[in-house]
Design a protein around this nucleic acid. Sequence first.
DNA 1: ATCGGTTTTGACAACGGTTTTCATATGCGG
DNA 2: CCGCATATGAAAACCGTTGTCAAAACCGAT
Lengths: 132, 132
Amino acid sequence: MTAPRQTKQRATVLEALRVTPRFVSAQELHGVLRAGGEGTGLTTVYRHLQALAADGTVDVLRADDGESLYRICADSGHHHHLVCRHCGTSVEVEGPAVERWAVRMAEEHGFADVEHTLEIFGTCASCSRKRG
Amino acid sequence: MTAPRQTKQRATVLEALRVTPRFVSAQELHGVLRAGGEGTGLTTVYRHLQALAADGTVDVLRADDGESLYRICADSGHHHHLVCRHCGTSVEVEGPAVERWAVRMAEEHGFADVEHTLEIFGTCASCSRKRG
DNA sequence: ATCGGTTTTGACAACGGTTTTCATATGCGG
DNA sequence: CCGCATATGAAAACCGTTGTCAAAACCGAT
């Protein structure tokens, strides 16, 4: 297991993610980099996001239309998200009771190796204002 | 708002879903129908699943790879699923406490029009046995 | 029963996000 | 500074899904 090479593109993608406090798609991120004068290829953006997601550096979320959205989170542990469906702004939330509930449900029905996905979607205060 | 016509294909898709107590993809369902001698087109299967999902007759779930999985549920109200990641077998579960928690989290952060997605994945007893 | 219109069907093409390909470029250890 | 394994990126392939459109089927009215 070798460490990834330190390339300009990798640094650029990471920096863009760090500056973006919301869930963004690979294509949107690519667009931002292009607009910023960085000639990073779309394929490269996808590859870095994939690697970052694999090692837990970024969290991944599936939008309704199937697009994958990425975001760097402050909390590196297990947590969930409260996401604005309009602008992607998100808040990290924890719910210990929910975790316990999920495990209990699984045990009751004989399921092993339990995981769960949980996301809360809504309209954030800022977007509520803009939309009346 | 007119009722959908009663066609052989619609009946066939519904019957196939009723006989399948697990989440299946549109393509898998199409394969089953083909194997059963029914010449139902893939497009038609997609259209019916779409319509059934829209009126709440079937529940939809996104697999990790982005594929949509469908299933007819006994409980027509709001509920979640405990799903076997190997065979798709699923159990319907309810968690009133979770619902309240989600709403409270949203309110605390000024989010409106709250919805949430929650699925529990695991390996069911039957698949655990097969896989040792 | 049959006619007429409206809806449904299904083979095929198009779509869109993501992944693969592969030749070139570039970190980086020796 | 070399050597070479890894990274890059344009273009093509992939794959689930949706749009197209002419032919077929449903169903109320005659």
